[in-house]
């Protein structure tokens, strides 16, 4: 039973065909890493799941609802789908605690006490309980991203989407964020992760999806994908991404 299902999805930016007939299924509890060269359309793909990017045609079923159908209550759906951005996108004017509790209070109509209690638990989980009163600009990039993950989790989502969560981080901070993501992956939540962190993919992903020029070229277990990529473009990509320079 798949929780996310792309059916013949196409997207154009004016003349540019950025997603070409994408069909893809992600099962409940599955951890899927989407990779591909820059410009391959992977960020666009993950944004179509909660309609931050509308699609041109095709269908995307998320938790049994077609997100491309305008009758779908997209706000309610988004509440069930956590999203972690490359640039964190914390709300700069709110404290860490308020960043996490805003949506639970406004969307889930939770009481402030309940929301804050939950937020503190989540902060403990990402190792930042002592920063609950800090403001985003007082945190390092790695800390901000961990708060962003906690913010997503506060909505108790059924799916977590990660759009290059470590690309904007200084190298020494990547580890702390990946560690939180690994712990999360082991908790059994469905995760779709766009990333270049092949170590993460190898370690916790159930499946790797390789995207290039808007097309899904390969889907395989990490073991298969890394040891025996089928397409030349995947081979080329892996060669570049795994070279010592990276």
């Amino acid at each position: 039973m798949s929780i996310i299902r792309f059916v013949n999805v196409n997207k154009w930016f004016k003349q540019l065909h950025v997603l070409k007939n994408v069909s893809l299924e992600i099962a409940q509890g599955e951890v899927v890493v989407v990779c591909g060269p820059s410009g391959s359309g992977k960020s666009t793909l993950i944004r179509t799941v909660n309609q931050l990017e509308p699609i041109s045609d095709g269908e995307i079923w998320v938790i049994d609802q077609n997100v491309a159908d305008h009758r779908t209550d997209i706000n309610a759906l988004r509440a069930d789908v956590g999203f972690v951005f490359q640039h964190f996108n914390l709300y700069p004017h709110l404290s860490v605690l308020d960043n996490i509790t805003l949506a639970p209070i406004k969307v889930r109509k939770q009481s402030r006490e309940a929301a804050e209690q939950k937020a503190v638990q989540l902060l403990e989980r990402v190792g930042l309980a002592h920063k609950k009163d800090a403001f985003p600009s007082q945190l390092s990039g790695g800390q901000q991203q961990r708060v962003a993950i906690a913010r997503g989790l506060a909505m108790e989502p059924k799916i977590m989407l990660f759009d290059e969560p470590t690309s904007a981080l200084d190298p020494e901070m990547i580890g702390e964020v990946l560690q939180v993501m690994k712990d999360l992956a082991l908790s059994g939540i469905t995760m779709m992760v766009v990333t270049h962190e092949m170590g993460f993919a190898r370690e916790v992903a159930h499946r790797v999806v390789f995207l290039d020029h808007g097309e899904v070229l390969e889907q395989a277990t990490p073991a298969e994908f890394f040891s025996a990529p089928k397409t030349d473009r995947a081979k080329q990509f892996l060669k570049q991404i795994l070279s010592p320079m990276h």
Binding site: L52, N75, L77, R78, A79, G82, H87, A103, K106, V107
Partner: peptide, 20 residues
């Protein structure tokens, strides 16, 4: 990203403007 950060959490467009 600020607008998306509001919408992605399920806030309506109005709530995103009001709170974010």
């Amino acid at each position: 990203g600020q607008k998306n950060a509001g919408l992605a959490l399920g806030l309506t467009l109005a709530q995103t403007y009001r709170h974010v």
